[in-house]
Design a protein around this nucleic acid. Structure first.
Length: 400
DNA sequence: CGTCCACAGGAATGACGGGCGG
DNA sequence: CCGCCCGTCATTCCTGTGGACG
């Protein structure tokens, strides 16, 4: 063991693959964002008035994941922030990831933090936190940008109450000014909104189209310049990463991930070049890591449900409808000696699995024979086994 | 063309653990 | 310490519905 570890360290140290792999990480904001020039200009145009002391319009930014929405926004805010310092205008900027902070309370708490007060992460009433934020923001007497990244997940979970409060905030401020930038992956998102919120929040709209394969290629080329040593990338490596990601709805994050992991695979193997074979390995690895991690940290009943889906699929060689799934699930819980959840709850869990990409659920109508949902797992047996690894009872049911 | 299946999924409600200010 | 409010998970009860069958 020690020996092979030594070997590995040695291989990693001698393999000269990366110069700076962080450049390929999803949260890295490059100075140059290829194929987003028009969005950058447009956004800058909308936000620039802040430098003259007026309040920029609120904006909605739409686009599927990995189209550079967040990167462009961060990029511009950074630029505006530094330009502001040059001309003596200081700004408050709150960047909130609503996927992570997906309750009204946490969003408001984050806003308070952005203007300089820590708020206990539970305990106060939401309206109290809002009040505090308004006072603090006003006292700071600055213009403020509130970026709500992935705001759709917030609204779907808790409704548009906070958004409504935020849009009205300017009326209650005498000195400070607040502009809201909402970023969403969901193109039909505004349908969920109260019309008043929709109109005041969507004063401006900006759409980020997905990248096509050749645009992804440009992005990867640009980033790989700083990330890799010269000449380590095999001829078609970038092309392949771009093509694979283009198939996945033009997700640049995905493409960068692939490229980075491919480099890491090569490094671990002590290879001096990154090849297409490494990319294919990386693709399997990226997928596996995601799935295994998600399942491993799930609560018991979700795991039991996944197990049930697996058993059902093996028994009848295909996806099952809700009724069948629930039947298998109840018998599984019995054998595990735990109480079954209600069908209503299980239906929510199924939807959760669908959103996470672990299962595939779609409603179908079988006419006379009812309206139901067909559910099937969308992960490989191998990954499932790895995810259940630390739970011997589950593994036993997987058989073989 | 209406019926009616087998659910989907919304609304109301409750149990629970946790932090606050006083 | 108490009373209050929070978010989360779960249950109960419910209304809504696409389309094959008759």
């Amino acid at each position: 063991m020690g020996n092979s570890l030594d070997d590995l360290f040695k291989r990693v140290l001698t393999a000269r693959i990366f110069v700076n792999r962080d450049i390929l990480r999803p949260d890295y904001v490059p100075d140059d964002l290829p194929h987003r020039q028009s969005q950058i200009l447009r956004l800058a145009e909308i936000l620039a008035p802040v430098l003259q002391g007026s309040r920029p319009s609120n904006i909605f930014i739409y686009g599927v994941p990995g189209t550079g929405k967040t990167a462009v926004t961060k990029h511009i805010l950074k630029k505006i922030g530094s330009e502001g310092r040059n001309v003596g205008v200081s700004l408050n900027i709150a960047f909130i990831n609503c996927k992570h902070d997906d309750t009204n309370y946490r969003v408001l708490a984050d806003l308070c933090e952005a203007v300089g007060e820590r708020i206990p992460f539970t305990g106060l009433s939401t309206s109290e936190v809002l009040k505090r934020f308004i006072n603090l923001a006003d006292a700071s007497n600055r213009s403020m940008f509130v970026v709500l990244d992935e705001v759709d997940s917030l609204v779907k979970k808790t409704g548009d109450k906070v958004l409504y409060d935020l849009t009205r905030i300017n009326n209650q401020l005498s000195r400070a000014k607040v502009s809201i930038i909402g970023i969403t992956n969901d193109l039909k998102f505004t349908e969920y909104l109260d019309p008043r919120v929709r109109s005041s929040l969507g004063e401006e709209e900006l759409v980020f189209p997905p990248y096509n394969a050749s645009e992804l290629e440009d992005i990867l080329k640009k980033r790989s310049e700083g990330a890799f040593h010269g000449g380590v990338l095999g001829g078609e490596v970038i092309k392949l990463c771009a093509a694979l990601a283009a198939k996945e709805h033009g997700d640049a994050r995905r493409a960068l991930d692939l490229l980075r992991v491919a480099g890491e695979v090569a490094e671990r193997g002590g290879d001096i070049k990154v090849t297409e074979e490494h990319v294919r390995k990386a693709q399997r690895e990226v997928e596996k890591d995601r799935v295994v991690e998600v399942i491993r940290t799930m609560p018991l009943h979700s795991k039991l449900l996944i197990l049930s889906l697996h058993l059902l699929e093996r028994r009848k060689g295909g996806g099952g409808i809700t009724g069948e799934v629930y039947e298998v699930y109840t018998s599984v819980t019995k054998r595990f000696g735990v109480e079954a959840l209600t069908q209503r709850r299980v239906s929510d869990l199924i939807n959760e699995l669908d959103m996470l990409g672990i299962a595939n659920a779609r409603v179908v109508s079988k006419g006379r024979y009812g309206r139901t949902k067909i559910v099937r797992l969308s992960i490989s047996d191998r990954n499932l086994r790895d995810a259940f690894q630390e739970d011997p009872r589950m593994v036993a049911y997987l058989g073989k």
